[in-house]
Design a protein around this nucleic acid. Structure first.
Lengths: 306, 306
DNA sequence: CGCGACGATGCCGCTTCGATATGGCCTGCG
DNA sequence: CGCAGGCCATATCGAAGCGGCATCGTCGCG
């Protein structure tokens, strides 16, 4: 059994048009070609599908039964391929992107907004999650791409750097630091420092650096979310070391961010993706958009805050 | 747009088997051929459907989306063509059916008549044969289906019950029994009983029952065919226990059938078929027709006789 | 570090497909 | 009643598509 699509297309055309040569025309073939296609199909099925009167052809009972089914097969195929093509063309499709809570609240939304503007048919899901969970979400396939920091190299995950995020001191406007242009890490040793919970990759970075300039130093508070840290700063409970981006989370009036030097510490924010899995067209496009726009968008944001 | 069935078949095979060369094997092609088919399909759609890691291939998100739809198209096509082919077979097929001599003379012919009315092109053969030979005819493939009784279960034969046939006393109109509504088995003990030959399954049933109510009883005559038995009854030589259906064989004026109780004995008449062999469309259709019509036809027959 | 498994690619022969030409049949018209 | 015009079937030939073979590149495993 080897019915071909060409045979079926010919069958439908002849059934619809009632003449072999008309059908041939509509298929861009010649009449003998159609004749042969129909003959093959009939041989395949072991029945004649058309009654050939000299003046025209008409469907046999069996042919009539077969026609709607043949139509449906062709339609379904058409639909399926169009679905795929549309996904490819970003007319629809979906992309799930993960981002740390801070990034999901700062630089990511404008990027997604721009993406959606260009591709309104695509469903975008933003999963904001703790940094440390991103890796698993990528591996598990819950998200297509992620925006975040890769602390240690993972063979399964590919990272493409997008922007560099400086670590800054965040303190209240009435704190002595607030009037300085720069603060050194060792200046932090005398302060009450609010740090993030141990699971957060940022904590690791802060600790590694502090240990070099003030080995005996102990943080005063430990919180899970940057937003909490900022609230505490705002309440005068201490200061914190946070990525530059978090500045956008702070109520601008009460809190200041000051450059932190000796050493300058940056962390790379990258687009993360599973190394083996290829990106869907939508994800692919979003990735490109992020790569080309991220710097600009970030710059714009910091400016408006400053 | 010109997706071909070969491409789709290749796509499904690769998706299922996870390797190009395995898929190629299952399709009866070589690996490069499959490679090209997939490449063409992907080009057609404008997306890659598989991620090729060296060790194996896996579906992309879009591929996963496409797979079930592709499957459905192929399945629908398969179904449609099979439908047509079946219809074709029903147009000029043949079916051989076996039935016991009694059934072949009573309920079977009207069923075949109705079948032929609906499917005039089908050649139907009715093999009337002794009950005990039916099983071999089925196993040997001489007949497609049979109508009869399956005495003991046979693993090779599948039985679908159609109607229940009561055992009745058959006697001449001037016999004392003829005026009764019911006769008990033990009443038979004093009669001259005509029984069927030992090969006939019915004989077994009659004997088993009689032995319980009259252990010492011996039949007076033994014949091979029910028709013979009825002729003998008609000649006043004795009475017999026969299935209700045989009544139709009796010349109505001279012979009566009376209900036989204590116990009521019935035997199931089933459609028999070989368990392994699948039925041809014509046989399949005949089987359905018997199942839906047998009861009605039998009822009609008994009524006209009564 | 080399071997083996797997997919991609290039080349060649064959099958298949379709166009052209032609023939047969029926119908409609003169 | 015969001829002309549609219409489908058949035959032949050329082209293209398809599949097999050989080979290459790559990655993973021992």
């Amino acid at each position: 059994m080897n019915v071909t699509l060409r045979q079926i297309r010919a069958f439908i055309a002849v059934a619809d048009l009632g003449r072999f040569n008309l059908a041939a025309n509509s298929l861009g073939l010649t009449q003998p070609a159609v004749s042969i296609l129909i003959r093959e199909l009939e041989a395949e099925m072991g029945v004649s599908l058309f009654d050939r009167h000299t003046r025209m052809v008409s469907l046999t009972a069996i042919g009539q039964e077969f026609l709607p089914q043949a139509r449906k097969v062709l339609e379904d195929l058409e639909l399926a391929t169009r679905g795929v093509r549309d996904s490819a063309a970003l007319k629809h499709g979906r992309v799930a992107v993960a981002a740390s809570i801070v990034l999901a609240a700062t630089i990511v939304p404008p990027l997604l907004a721009r993406f959606l503007e260009q591709h309104p048919g695509v469903a975008v899901q933003l999963h904001d999650m703790a940094e440390e969970r991103i890796r698993m979400a990528l591996k598990g396939g819950q998200v297509d791409i992620a925006i975040g920091t890769l602390v240690d190299d993972d063979p399964e995950i590919k990272a493409t750097p997008v922007i560099c995020d400086r670590l800054m001191v965040t303190c209240r406007a009435d704190h002595p630091f607030a009037r300085l242009k720069q603060v050194r890490w060792q200046d932090l040793a005398k302060e009450r420092l609010i740090v993030l919970a141990a699971e957060n990759p940022l904590r690791e970075i802060v600790e590694r650096t502090m240990i070099r300039v003030a080995p005996a130093f102990r943080p005063s508070y430990e919180v899970r979310f940057s937003t909490t840290a900022i609230s505490m700063i705002s309440a005068g409970m201490g200061i914190s070391v946070l990525p530059e981006n978090s500045r956008q989370l702070a109520p601008a009036v009460h809190v200041r961010t000051i450059e932190l030097v000796e050493p300058r510490v940056t962390r790379e924010i990258s687009i993360l993706q599973h190394r083996q899995r290829s990106l869907s067209p939508a994800a692919q496009r979003l990735r490109e958009l992020i790569l080309t726009n991220a710097a600009a968008i970030r710059a714009a944001h910091l400016e408006t805050d400053a």
